[in-house]
Amino acid sequence: MVTSRVSNTTQRLPTMDTVTVEWDECYHSRGGPSVEGGAFSHIMQAARGSLEPMLPCSSAGCRGGGFEILEVVESMVSNRLEDKSGLLVCIGWEYTKGRQTAQSPCTRVISYRIGLTYRKRGDSLRHSTARKDMIGTSEA
């Protein structure tokens, strides 16, 4: 259940205060993946304890997919990083065109940038509600 995974981030990330995730879909080109426009079209901000573990995949045919952002944030917290950027591949699958029984991996890729702020020692849980701002272009 998504709700339990989301609320569990308080225990999994006790030193994190806020997280800002910016991302954009990468489009394949002959020279490799490239980001259209060069800017991040989506932004999500969350307070401690309210981080969604997965960013959704925009492919209508994707099943069980998304981008595992929580694992990246956990790695950042473990290494006490404040900023990180990179690429993530969707973990889902799609039916092969014309064959409803054959499956192939979803090939959607996002470029992301994450910024974290950490709690000061002795801070109590002062962020009891999540703040999320979804800014972006409409997904095709």
Score class of each variant (00 low, 15 high):
A102N: 08
K97A: 12
E25G: 01
H127K: 11
T20L: 11
G65Q: 04
S7V: 14
G122R: 06
S75R: 15
R12Y: 06
P14T: 05
C106V: 04
S128M: 06
S41Q: 06
Y95Q: 14
T129D: 08
S111Y: 05
M54W: 12
K120E: 11
E71S: 12
E82W: 04
L70Y: 12
E139N: 11
G65P: 04
V21K: 13
G136Q: 09
G38K: 04
S7A: 14
G65H: 02
R30G: 07
M76Y: 12
V109K: 06
R121G: 10
R126W: 06
R119G: 02
E82D: 04
T96D: 00
I69R: 03
S7G: 03
E94S: 00
E82R: 10
Q11Y: 09
E52H: 12
K120Y: 04
I69E: 03
P56M: 07
S58W: 01
L87I: 12
M1N: 06
V77K: 01
K132W: 13
V35T: 13
T15G: 07
S50H: 15
G122A: 10
E25N: 06
A140F: 10
E25M: 01
V73Q: 03
H28I: 12
E74T: 08
C106P: 11
R12M: 10
N79T: 11
R108F: 00
T96I: 09
R119H: 09
P33K: 01
T3P: 03
R113L: 15
A60L: 05
A60D: 11
I43Q: 09
V89Q: 15
G38D: 07
S7L: 15
G92N: 04
F67Y: 13
H127N: 14
L55M: 11
I110Q: 03
G136Y: 02
G49Q: 02
I43D: 00
R30W: 07
G98S: 10
G136R: 10
C90A: 08
F67G: 01
V21S: 08
E71M: 02
G115R: 15
D24V: 11
V2G: 00
R5A: 09
S75C: 05
R5Q: 08
V35E: 03
T117A: 13
C62E: 10
S104L: 06
S41F: 00
T15S: 15
A60C: 00
T9Y: 02
